[in-house]
Amino acid sequence: MVTKRQVPTVRLRRLAAELRRLRAVAELTQGDVAEATGINTATLYRIESAKVRPQRRTLMTLLELYQVPQLRRGEVLALLQDNGEQSWLRPYHADLRDGYIEYIGLEAEARAVWNYESLHVPGLLQTADYYRAVVRSVLHAADEDEIDRRVRVRLERYSVLVKDEPLQFRAVLDEAAIRRAVGGPEVMCDQLRHMVSAAALPNVTLQIIPFTAGAHAGMPGSFALLSFPEAEGPEIIYVDSRAGDIFIEAAEDLDRYGDTFDRLVSLALSPDESVSLIAEAAGEFGERAEGAA
């Protein structure tokens, strides 16, 4: 039986941050709170780090201790409601990293995602055959059933781009991402044509940094910046690394990554030029596929 994992949603992250802020305003340590309420420090740490969802009575106890006004209490309590993780993900928990599950949940709640990719096509735009080739190259021990399940999850993510209030998606790619023959010429031809089609959506913008641009600020690696409703700018940075899934929320890091993304956008070809380059690369892969047939 697959056990449902607790992963932070946007609301749970905001609730944790607000509780940390309220405790700081009240000038109380976690030890002070534990002594006054009977909530042990380990539980309080997990609540304040968004590792667990507090019970309503626990939250009310904290708000009472912090002397939060009634109107503000209602706003904080609203964060306790979980519009949470996508239910379609539950059958796939055994195959996916906790961090990846968390990212998918955040992506589904996001208003906008700015994605820089140095080597791969953005996950949201990957075709089944492209992603299948990636998984096979990375997870050598994965059997076909596991690969199929991972592919279904990857394809399901595309729905955020075509729902009633679609995600605003802007991706900047190094030219290497559209030149590397992942899965072979035919797979790449189909993948690049799919990207051209996706770029026609009004909420999708693609830009390519050409090889001729030389060295640039994105060479250290890929990242995504996520913004959410009512937020003026990005609130979370996501980095998928060999060391694991990394989520960064510090203001100085958000500014730094945001500045990096702006510089990559200014260095890249225009969206129209980029789509033309992608289509050109698709044609070249198509010719190679026909020549190999």
Rank of each mutant, 00 (worst) to 15 (best):
V153I: 09
L155A: 04
L155E: 09
E156P: 08
R157C: 03
S159Y: 11
V160L: 11
K163D: 07
K163L: 02
K163Q: 12
K163Y: 01
E165L: 10
P166G: 08
P166I: 09
P166D: 10
L167W: 00
Q168A: 15
Q168T: 15
F169Q: 08
F169W: 10
R170T: 13
R170Q: 11
V172G: 05
L173T: 06
D174K: 13
E175F: 05
R179T: 10
R179S: 09
A181G: 07
V182R: 05
G184K: 03
G184W: 01
E186R: 15
V187M: 06
V187E: 05
M188Y: 04
D190H: 14
D190P: 04
L192S: 06
R193S: 05
R193T: 04
H194G: 14
H194L: 10
M195V: 11
M195C: 13
M195Q: 13
S197L: 13
A198P: 02
A200K: 09
A200C: 05
P202C: 09
N203E: 08
N203Y: 10
V204M: 04
V204S: 04
T205R: 05
L206D: 12
Q207K: 01
I209E: 01
I209A: 07
P210E: 00
P210A: 06
P210R: 06
F211A: 10
F211P: 01
A213L: 03
G214C: 07
G214P: 06
A215Q: 09
H216F: 06
G218T: 01
G218I: 05
P220G: 09
G221M: 05
A224D: 10
L225Y: 05
L226C: 07
P229M: 05
A231H: 14
G233F: 12
I236S: 02
I236K: 02
I237H: 01
Y238F: 14
V239D: 04
D240T: 08
S241G: 10
R242Y: 14
R242A: 14
D245T: 02
D245E: 12
I246V: 13
F247K: 01
F247D: 00
I248V: 14
I248Q: 01
E249C: 00
A250M: 05
A251K: 09
A251P: 06
A251C: 04
D255Q: 10
R256L: 13
R256T: 15
R256C: 09
R256D: 15
D259I: 14
T260Q: 11
T260K: 08
F261T: 05
F261R: 06
D262K: 12
